[in-house]
């Protein structure tokens, strides 16, 4: 369990970091919190020539909250989100979901940008980015681009990031105060990766009908996904036990999770239906 040989640099600006990445033709890798990359190095699943540490890029460590939503710098750590009391109002879904990420020591190091770039299909932050139509801000040799979460996650541990690109910010659109929401996941042990999880929100129109339902699921596909068919069941209707049952059934039918050592696919599909049902009940309470 020893990492392979590599060089190390800790640049002072994003521009310098990008040029270091660009200088190695794909053989350089960013290290942020290191809480996913270090295990990958220990197992030698990754063997870059050069590690580019973002530790000095303090600008990327800010949580900015404004009229247009919440902007999480790529270097924002789980413990920073946990201790920012503003988020309970500005983005309660984010605050709740991040409570489930990893353990105390890992939460002191692990970052938003690292999690989103790592793109584990069971990870909470990518799930929230997908559910909430987040916009990713990405800086590379070619300049800055903004990409929607739906286009950013491309497969298991895969994203649209180029070798010389750095994710600098995740922007979650503004959160109306009256919005209904829930986040539920199931893991065998607190802090472990979830077997499956569901994030959801919706607004109510003047007739108490559901509008703009967003349901995201983690741990059930090769990337975080939206359950659009279940969303369609909800939109335009008033919440009821019957509606919840119909949305849950639709969610279960619409996914085909892989089986692994932790759980068979059918179990995960049932789990999503159960979590969605509970989440919808909770959101309406």
């Amino acid at each position: 369990m020893k990492p392979p040989i590599f060089e190390y640099a800790s640049p002072l600006t994003v521009a310098e970091a990008v040029s270091l990445l660009a200088s190695r033709n794909g053989n350089a890798k960013v290290i942020s919190g290191g809480q996913s990359l270090m295990p990958m190095l220990a197992f030698r699943l990754a063997a870059p020539e050069l590690l580019v540490d973002l530790k000095h890029l303090k600008d990327l460590g800010a949580i900015r909250i404004g009229e247009d939503g919440v902007r999480l710098g790529a270097r924002v750590r789980w413990c920073d989100i946990e201790s920012d009391a503003r988020l309970a109002v500005s983005h309660p879904l984010l605050a709740e979901a991040i409570k489930h990420v990893a353990h105390y020591q890992i939460r002191n190091r692990g970052t938003v940008g690292g999690s989103v770039a790592h793109a584990d299909p069971s990870a909470e932050m990518p799930g929230i980015a997908m559910t909430c139509d987040a916009q990713m801000k990405i800086v590379g040799s070619a300049g800055t681009r903004i990409e929607a979460a739906a286009d950013f996650f491309t497969g298991p541990l895969q994203t649209s990031l180029e070798q010389d690109e750095i994710l600098t910010e995740v922007h979650l659109p503004a959160w109306p105060a009256a919005r209904r929401w829930a986040f539920l996941e199931f893991a065998r042990r607190k802090g472990d990766f979830a077997m499956a999880g569901v994030a959801l929100y919706y607004d109510l129109d003047s007739g108490s009908r559901i509008t703009d339902a967003h349901i995201g699921a983690i741990g059930v596909a090769d990337r975080p996904i939206r359950l659009t068919e279940a969303e369609a069941v909800l939109n335009g209707n008033q919440m009821s036990d019957k509606l919840i049952a119909a949305a849950s059934a639709k969610a279960r039918q619409s996914i085909d999770p892989p089986s692994d050592i932790h759980a068979p696919g059918a179990y995960r599909a049932a789990l999503v239906a159960t979590l969605l049902g509970r989440g919808l009940k909770k959101s309406a309470a």
């Binding site: 190390y8 290191g34 809480q35 270090m38 220990a42 530790k55 020591q105 890992i106 002191n108 190091r109």
Partner: peptide
């Protein structure tokens, strides 16, 4: 802050 020293490089 409590951190895991196997997930941190000495150079960090």
């Amino acid at each position: 802050e409590a951190v895991r020293s196997c997930l941190l490089l000495a150079v960090q």
